[in-house]
Amino acid sequence: MSGTTPPTKARRRRSSGRATLQDVAQAAGVSPITVSRALRGERAVTPELVARVQEAAAQLGYVPDPAARALASSRSSQVAVLIPLLSNALFVDLLDAAQRALLAAGYQTLIGVTHYEPSEEEALLRSYLLHRPAGLIVTGFDRTDEARRLIEGSGVPCVHVMETVAASGTYSVGFSQADAGRAMTEALLARGRTQIAFAAAQLDPRTLQRSEGYRRALQAAGRYRPELEFMNPERSSLALGGELLEQVLREAPEVDAIFFNNDDLAQGALLAALRLGIKVPERLAIAGFNDLTGSEQMLPPLSTVRTPRSEIGAEAAAMLIKLMRGERVAAPQLDLGYQVLLRGSC
């Protein structure tokens, strides 16, 4: 038996029994550096070699050591993605698309939740940047001065999502929240609504940008009334949407349309209207924002603004991958637009 070759998985160099990069290189018949490049998804490696390396790694059960990779390259293969909430389907869709694209390119995702608190985002940035991530994806542009300095001083490629800004050296993927807010308000005006309220919760920067668009549309039409803005700092929910509906009609019974800053609130308002016997859209038009799951199934179907959150996640990841590889990004500010959907609630 001494002359027989032991099983491949038994040929391990570490006392832990884990397969090493050298093991994969020997099994694939290539150099260790080729294995490393193939598993990182570098374009310099041919598809045939990538397939051979991946097959060898799978047979050996090889798992890359992120700590060793970070020591070898002075930067890890991890990407930090900072989003406001995981309970919001908007950001779940964005994160899912970004993570899929990053994983396919050989990067792992570190998820940080800021809870819309700039101080929490700053703390997360301090923690993640200590580990030298390969890249960053952050939400919007509203952050502390120190957080901006941390990002700029780190030298780590960064892409902003959900908003765009024309600034040299800044990369972003999103759309104009203000333009989208204005477009929905103009659509309500075109439907003959003259007393349009804006009802909002959470009051994050993107909500305030939508309210700005609402304001501009009504000012241009000579219909703006500041008392018809109902701004609640509480977290958005279906229940709060119903409460806001009742508040608007109690304090401004002449209102003939309510533009809610998101679909959670608008869906709650539709349910409350059904319970209270308020006819939608005959007595009152109701509109939302984001076109979340369930909006089209409401009674009546909810009019809303469809936002390309999955596309934003995928495009932001693609842009970041180019930056991490040192490749040129042709369009540093990518505006993916939005779509106003007028359904039965208007």
Rank of each mutant, 00 (worst) to 15 (best):
I258L: 05
Q99T: 14
A221G: 06
L323E: 06
N262F: 01
R43E: 15
Q297A: 15
V50D: 04
R223H: 09
I111Q: 01
S154R: 10
P118S: 09
P226L: 12
L218Y: 09
R306C: 00
L292S: 11
E146A: 14
T207Q: 07
G268D: 02
A166H: 13
L60P: 06
R43S: 15
A187K: 03
T139E: 03
L124P: 04
R75N: 07
D204T: 14
R283Y: 06
Q209K: 12
V161C: 06
Q177L: 13
A217C: 06
E152Y: 04
L110A: 13
L39H: 02
E254H: 14
R149W: 11
D142P: 07
R182N: 05
H115K: 15
R283A: 10
Q195T: 14
V35G: 05
P308Q: 00
Y62T: 04
R75T: 06
L49K: 13
S73G: 10
A38Y: 13
R69W: 14
R283F: 03
R18D: 11
E120T: 15
M184D: 05
I137H: 02
R132F: 08
R12C: 10
D145A: 14
A67K: 15
I312Q: 06
M324C: 04
A252Y: 00
E282P: 00
E146R: 10
P332W: 07
L150T: 11
M1G: 14
G3T: 15
N261R: 08
A200T: 06
G313F: 05
L276I: 09
E243C: 01
A97M: 12
D335Y: 10
S87E: 12
L82N: 05
G213L: 11
S76R: 08
T293W: 13
Y214T: 01
T114K: 10
R18C: 07
M319W: 03
A44E: 14
P300W: 11
I258K: 02
A187I: 00
T144S: 12
